[in-house]
Nucleic acid binder design. Structure first.
Length: 420
RNA sequence: GGUGGCGUGUCUGAGCGGCCAAAAGAGCACGCCUCGAAAGCGUGUGUUGGGGAAACUCAACCGUGGGUUCAAAUCCCACCGCCACCGCCA
């Protein structure tokens, strides 16, 4: 949620941000208008309440006729207080309601435009030339290696489902182990969070807004399945005040992620690029707002380190304003080269949510200047299926066997995946 | 799932319907003492919101949400959470 005081002082900045995102600009005016009314209502209520507090005290002290008389007027005042309070509560709720619809204020450096208007920041590595053979896609390779079984996945769980078997399963463990051990080396606290969360956690992280249709909701229990461990990691410190000298607090969460993938019919229907369930190691940082931009760069660097270790060519893009999540003020995606698609495809993503998410979740820090909202940032260290796709396709040999990146060899005990 | 107990500030822990932002202790900060420290002594120490340039002032907050009352941390109801015991269970 946006800071209403900031909005009051800088309405044009917020308007420009909304415009850049292609979102409703008139919300800004609506908030200002209702906020005005809200403050008037607060004032009315508080004046009446103060009067009531004084009167109530004198009722306690009074005796006999005096008391009967006072009670009479106190009763009348009580109803007026109640009415003023109801009005105040309504306006507070309305203000909140509209303010929550506003997205985070864009970083001025974020490219303005729609999804396709991203800016490529850099290319790392060179897409491999397949001289003597036609590269196979990951579905075919997965079958040859006994690593991925999408047919049985569909039989048991429908479309966009799969089994990782044999070296596929082993590859997941290796990726996770490599990711977690490098995260621990970098100072992250490894975390296995709950994936079933309650409404405050889900709402607080901002996933029940535009992204709501992609969330699995267990109505009987009033719970949600998370689409990323960002949710339980962010909510971990919900309603807490963190000591400033402990910042940044960095967590690496390993969890299963659930996504309905509503509205993606026909997109990536083949293989495991877009699935309903996958495992992921996610980095999450709570830091001082003044440090957020640097921290964002660090997260990006750790993501790049991972891709480098996997020996996969990729590019880094600065995601355009229209394609940012509502909490992010800037986002960098890493896209790995997928040979059979002759395209770069998203494998990781890191967002700077500044204080936007923390304000909703009520996560603050305390230093000499007082108590303020922290900044939160997140970034993918490794999303398993997409990384498997990238590894299989980029490191395949003509017979369908696949070379294992050096970094993973200690975890797998082999240099090469052979056909089954 | 059943029964019982409990939820108060950074923590422990008092709290009779009005005198309660809330005793006491601990912690923390500052000061005195000291060569320095510990101990001791003294002072201070919640958050959010409204108004105000500020000093300050007003209001709200005792798990959450309702209710009773002129007045609720205190009484009533619902929910959530924690603890104990029983039942079931990987």
């Amino acid at each position: 949620m946006i800071d209403i005081k900031f909005l009051r002082d800088n309405p044009d900045v917020v308007r420009a941000s909304q415009k850049g995102r292609g979102e409703d600009v008139t919300l800004v005016g609506q908030v200002i208008e209702i906020d005005e009314k809200r403050r008037v209502a607060i004032n009315e209520f508080e004046l009446l309440r103060a009067e009531q507090n004084t009167l109530s005290k004198s009722v306690g002290a009074a005796k006999g006729d005096e008391k009967t008389k006072l009670l009479e007027s106190a009763k009348d005042l009580a109803t007026r207080v109640k009415n003023a309070d109801v009005k105040r509560a309504e306006l507070e709720a309305q203000t909140q309601n509209i303010a929550l619809q506003l997205s985070n204020v864009l970083d001025p450096k974020a490219p303005i435009g729609k999804e396709e208007d991203f800016v490529v920041l850099e290319h790392v590595g060179t897409p491999r030339e397949f001289q003597n053979f036609e590269p196979k896609d990951h579905v075919e390779l997965g079958k040859l290696l006994g690593a991925i079984d999408t047919e049985r996945g569909a039989k048991v769980s429908g479309s966009r489902s799969y089994y990782l078997t044999g070296v596929g399963a082993l590859l997941e463990f290796a990726l996770v182990n490599y990711a977690i051990s490098s995260a621990v080396k970098a100072g992250f606290t490894p975390v296995i969070p709950p994936v079933l969360v309650n409404p405050p956690a889900m709402e607080g992280t901002g996933f029940l807004g535009q992204a709501a249709e992609n969330v699995y909701h267990l109505e009987k229990d009033g719970m949600y399945l998370v689409g990323t461990s960002e949710v339980p990691l962010a909510a971990y410190h919900m309603d807490e005040v963190l000591p400033a000298d402990k910042l940044p607090l960095r967590y690496a969460g390993y969890s299963t992620c659930f996504r309905r993938e509503a509205g993606t019919y026909g997109k990536d229907t083949r293989g495991i690029i877009r699935v309903h369930q996958f495992d992921k190691v996610e980095m999450f940082s709570f830091c001082h707002p003044d440090q957020a931009i640097e921290e964002h760069q660090r997260l990006l660097q750790w993501e790049k380190d991972f891709l480098n270790a996997m020996e996969i060519p990729y590019r880094v893009i600065d995601v355009a304003s229209g394609d940012l999540g509502s909490s992010a003020n800037r986002k960098f995606d890493i896209e790995a080269w997928i040979p059979t698609q002759k395209a770069y495809r998203e494998v990781t993503s890191t967002s700077n949510c500044t204080e936007f998410q923390a304000r909703r979740l009520n996560i603050r820090f305390k230093d000499a200047d007082g108590i303020k909202a922290v900044a939160t940032l997140n970034g993918t260290l490794v999303a398993i299926p997409r990384m498997i796709v990238a590894i299989l396709e980029n490191h395949q040999n003509s017979d369908g066997s696949v070379n294992v990146p050096k970094a993973l060899q200690p975890f797998l005990g082999t240099q090469r995946f052979e056909l089954v």
